[in-house]
Design a protein around this nucleic acid. Structure first.
Length: 489
RNA sequence: GUCCCCGUCGUCCAGGGGUCAGGACGCGGCCCUUUCAAGGCUGAAACGCGGGUUCGAAUCCCGCCGGGGACGCCA
């Protein structure tokens, strides 16, 4: 309907990893762009040169790629507004700052950081506390200014906040009005010639023609300053959508002490990116009257809207994430799971080349996964649960052996069952079940006892997928061999 | 302290003048069952408080309280 193409951006500073809050902000931007066929820009805010490096940037990109949040413009893919690193755009910021001085929207401040800090401290102690409206250098006597200039004194550039009010149009929160008297004359260019955040974001968003700014709630109070900047620059103001923050269980802003905060840590825990995306999307957003909770990426793209974002902060709930993971795990195909755990199995010495797609044991490993699937809570569970089904040698849980197959009688039963299995045809779950139950009945023992003993013989454990499926999967030869092995142990 | 945002089950959300206040996670019970899961059914569980407006308020308005955020030559 609207002819203006949507352009959104995610602009993280390179901290070395993508935390969940940032990931959700990125996700919302991405969903919005994809929903409207717009453009998703990734821009790195690395004006703080000290703390930035290629490795730091890489950490962010790894997280983005893992979640499947591909960007249309940005690092590696380029685009018409290069560079997508703020560090490469310093000249542009300086020019803009100068332009604002020339047009009277900004002015030089010759005070040093130390002077200001001292003044602020004094103001705070003096309890007057009108520091936040700092305008001390606003109308410096030209002669004085010239004198400072002659001295070669460093100067910062501050924005001259006009009188009046500034309105922020926010899709999540509605219109928010700020009295300009509460906004200080903020610095836009540091005395070392580097821009501050306010200048650089606005400059970039203007230059990159960003139409919608979707970012964290913590930026709300920055927004009037930026709106003022847009106006002073004569640029169109984008629409804003400030998404609520993600909190820890104690309602405090999510931080390291709440546990994992980097999305990559969740990958390491065996969380599926599908589950993370689904979970994050529903943290602060909902499709409205629909009760749907499980979404594929495409379904999210279709359903997403900024209007569905709620205004209140949300607590990160690990149990619910775990549930989403189980759900998405069950919706993955067997061979897809195989592909994702190949390296884990290999590291555990359980992988065989014949498991590879197109090879003779691929169907077998898929069948293993099929049995395990409803029991998997994370990808990492596969190795341990699959071990007795894949390994040539099984390891006995001695307590289990003693409990379920400790008596000479039971071992004799296992041996007899082995004999029965040799003649069984076909060797499938239904036939096996009949045989096992039939044997128990004839032998005058409980089916459960026979089943438990058999399970220990075949897997070495008390816990496994359905026994008859396991037997069919293992195949006659292995079943007979393992039954006899425990029987004669 | 100043400015701003937010207040529905423990948690995430729906509802937005008249609903038995709905769903999901988690928790309890039952069913299925050879173990463990998964699944089905089911139960407990919420409109922060006080004033208005209205025939009627969880819903609209005001105040309070509570939670969060921002107040840097950080981003």
């Amino acid at each position: 309907m609207t002819p203006t193409p949507i352009r959104v951006r995610f602009a993280p500073s390179p901290t070395g990893y993508l935390h969940v809050g940032g990931a959700r902000t990125a996700l919302f931007n991405w969903l919005y762009a994809r929903h409207y066929g717009g453009t998703f820009v990734l821009r790195i805010e690395d004006t703080d040169v000290e703390r930035s490096s290629d490795e730091m940037v890489e950490g962010i990109l790894v997280g983005m790629r893992w979640l499947g949040l591909d960007w249309d413009e940005g690092p590696f893919v380029g685009g018409p507004h290069e560079p997508y690193f703020q560090s490469g755009r310093l000249e542009r910021y300086r020019a803009l700052a100068q332009q604002l001085v020339d047009t009277g929207h900004a002015y030089y401040d010759y005070r040093t950081a130390e002077e200001i800090t001292a003044a602020r401290t004094a103001a705070e102690q003096g309890d007057t506390d009108d520091w936040s409206h700092d305008r001390a250098s606003r109308d410096l006597d030209p002669a004085q200014a010239a004198a400072y200039e002659a001295e070669g004194r460093p100067r910062a550039i501050r924005f001259r906040v006009p009188h009046g009010q500034t309105q922020v149009r926010d899709i999540v929160h509605g219109d928010i009005t700020f009295d300009n008297a509460t906004i200080e004359d903020f610095v836009i260019l540091r005395s070392d010639g580097h821009p501050t955040y306010h200048l650089s974001v606005v400059a970039d968003d203007v230059d990159m023609q960003i139409t919608s700014v979707i970012r964290g709630d913590d930026h709300i109070s920055n927004t009037p300053k930026q709106v003022l900047l847009y106006q002073a620059l004569g640029a169109p103001v984008p629409e804003f959508a400030h998404v609520p923050l993600i909190l820890g269980a104690d309602k405090k802003r999510l931080s390291k002490r709440h546990g994992a905060t980097s999305v990559i840590e969740y990958r390491a825990q065996g969380i599926l990116p599908e589950a993370m995306v689904n979970f994050l999307a529903l943290l602060g957003w909902s499709p409205g009257s629909s009760d749907q909770e499980l979404f594929t990426r495409d379904e999210l793209v279709r359903a997403f809207s900024l209007e569905g974002i709620s205004g209140g902060n949300a607590v990160f709930n690990n149990e619910k994430l775990a549930w989403f993971n189980i759900q998405h795990m069950m919706r993955l195909s067997d061979s897809e799971i195989v592909a994702r755990v190949e390296s884990d199995l290999d590291a555990a010495g359980l992988w065989r080349p014949s498991f590879e797609h197109g090879h003779d044991e691929h169907a077998f490993i898929c069948a293993v996964i099929a049995l395990l699937k409803p029991r998997l809570h994370a990808l990492g569970d596969v190795v341990e649960q699959a071990r007795p089904l894949i390994a040539r040698e099984i390891v006995y849980d001695e307590a289990a052996v003693a409990k379920h197959a400790g008596t000479p009688e039971m071992r004799a039963h296992l041996s007899a069952l082995a004999d029965a299995c040799e003649a069984l045809e076909p060797f499938d779950a239904a036939t096996i079940e009949q045989a096992v139950r039939g044997y128990a009945e004839r032998a005058g023992i409980k089916a459960g006892a026979m089943i438990h003993a058999t399970r220990v013989a075949l897997t070495g454990r008390t816990v496994s997928p359905g026994l008859f499926e396991v037997m069919a999967l293992l195949g006659r030869a292995t079943v007979v061999e393992r039954l006899r092995r425990l029987a004669t142990r």
